[in-house]
């Protein structure tokens, strides 16, 4: 068999395309669900960490540190295989969402914190002097500026998160990687793996490019 037939077998690719696309759909659903939950949780975490009463701050700091330290794969296995022993059963999908979100929310919180701390103190003071409530000050003045500053690093977190969805295949999620592995076994040919790799690249490469160009633009704007 030639190199082409081995790694780029069109017949195999064609027959496994449907399964790969199913897997891709699941990967994207898993990625987006985790992205939304982790960014929402990250926002709550950072507000608790910066502005909460002391016990909340301590809890938020501990949470952020722990989930940035633990390997995602270990956490995923814990959630899926260990929690059932204490009666907590997640479906593979929600086990993956939980593990991914716990870790990504910790990173998102740190990223948002950098953004909030970069907002000029005068912005807080102007809002306070006008009589804004704390909530309005954050919602209308601070967060819009903070989040704009952290678009590139938060997109980076999003990219890592989508990449990390591949780990979900270890909890029997039929995601893109799992589908490719099954197809490879079924056809005894690695072409589906190549196909899967290409699909990952197709979603992630543009995102990587976008982050770089936003960073460039922000750097130029800052230098002006």
């Amino acid at each position: 068999m030639g190199l082409m037939e081995t790694f780029f077998n069109l017949d195999v690719l064609h027959s496994s395309a449907l399964a790969l696309l199913e897997g891709l759909k699941l990967t994207i659903t898993l990625g987006l669900t985790s992205l939304v939950t982790s960014f929402a949780a990250g926002l709550i975490l950072v507000l608790g960490r910066l502005y909460g009463p002391m016990p909340i701050r301590v809890i938020a700091i501990a949470f952020i540190d722990i989930f940035r330290a633990i390997p995602l794969l270990v956490l995923l296995v814990l959630v899926y295989y260990a929690l059932p022993f204490v009666g907590i059963n997640f479906s593979p999908f929600w086990a993956a969402v939980t593990a991914l979100s716990l870790v990504a929310s910790a990173y998102a919180a740190e990223c948002f914190r950098a953004g909030i701390e970069a907002v000029a103190i005068g912005q807080f003071e102007a809002a306070k002097a006008l009589g804004f409530s704390w909530t309005d000050m954050m919602k209308d003045v601070v967060l819009p500026q903070a989040l704009r500053l952290v678009i590139p690093p938060s997109t980076g977190i999003g990219i890592s998160l989508i990449k990390d969805t591949a780990l979900a295949s270890v909890v029997a999620m039929p995601d893109l990687l799992k589908q490719a592995l099954q197809a490879q076994a079924f056809y005894a040919n690695p072409s589906p793996l190549i196909g899967a790799a290409l699909l990952y690249l197709i979603i992630l490469l543009p995102l990587v490019r976008i982050v770089s160009s936003i960073e460039e633009r922000q750097k130029r704007a800052a230098g002006r």
């Binding site: 000029a120 005068g122 912005q123 003071e125 002097a129 009589g131 804004f132 003045v141």
Partner: peptide, 17 residues
């Protein structure tokens, strides 16, 4: 906030949004 609403402030550095 009631007091602050009655007391306007203009800063050296403007601090516009």
């Amino acid at each position: 906030n009631k007091v602050r609403a009655e007391v306007g402030m203009v800063f050296q550095q403007f601090n516009l949004f």
